[in-house]
């Protein structure tokens, strides 16, 4: 049973009276409608300004991320210098090192050793 059928069943002997009343529904005057339209426009919030499109997020390259991970350009420059020194030591002729070791090895070692024999004796070593 539809809602309308149900309602008509409820209305019983009053059905035709209600039906007539529904047909002669009170209608507002044109003047009142015009005033309501003016009031609605008067109360209406101002149009929202167009929101500019948000800039696309900047894509970070993998190199930039790696650079940041190492601590920036200064850290990378230090690392590069250390690498270059290592490479130089690797390819330089071994005579230089031999000369260094053989010329006065004891004095060289003592020069490299931060503690002297006296210091070790004092420590009981």
């Amino acid at each position: 049973m539809t809602m309308t059928d149900q309602r008509r069943k409820e209305e019983g002997t009053l059905a035709s009276l209600f039906e007539a009343e529904r047909q002669y529904a009170p209608v507002p005057s044109g003047d009142w409608m015009a005033r309501m339209e003016a009031l609605a426009l008067e109360e209406q919030p101002a149009p929202r300004p167009a929101v500019p499109a948000a800039p696309a997020p900047r894509r970070r390259s993998g190199w930039r991320e790696a650079l940041r991970a190492f601590g920036g350009w200064p850290a990378v420059a230090g690392l590069a210098a250390a690498c270059a020194t290592g490479v130089w030591i690797g390819i330089a002729s071994p005579e230089t090192m031999t000369t260094l070791m053989s010329s006065d090895s004891s004095s060289l070692l003592s020069a490299l050793d931060p503690a002297s024999g006296f210091d070790y004796a004092m420590l009981g070593l």
């Binding site: 507002p28 409608m33 309501m36 339209e37 609605a40 209406q44 919030p45 149009p47 929202r48």
Partner: peptide
């Protein structure tokens, strides 16, 4: 609410009566 005037007119025509 977004400021469309046509919506104001349509609502008055629909809801006023």
């Amino acid at each position: 609410a977004a400021g469309e005037q046509a919506a104001a007119r349509a609502l008055v025509q629909r809801l006023g009566p």
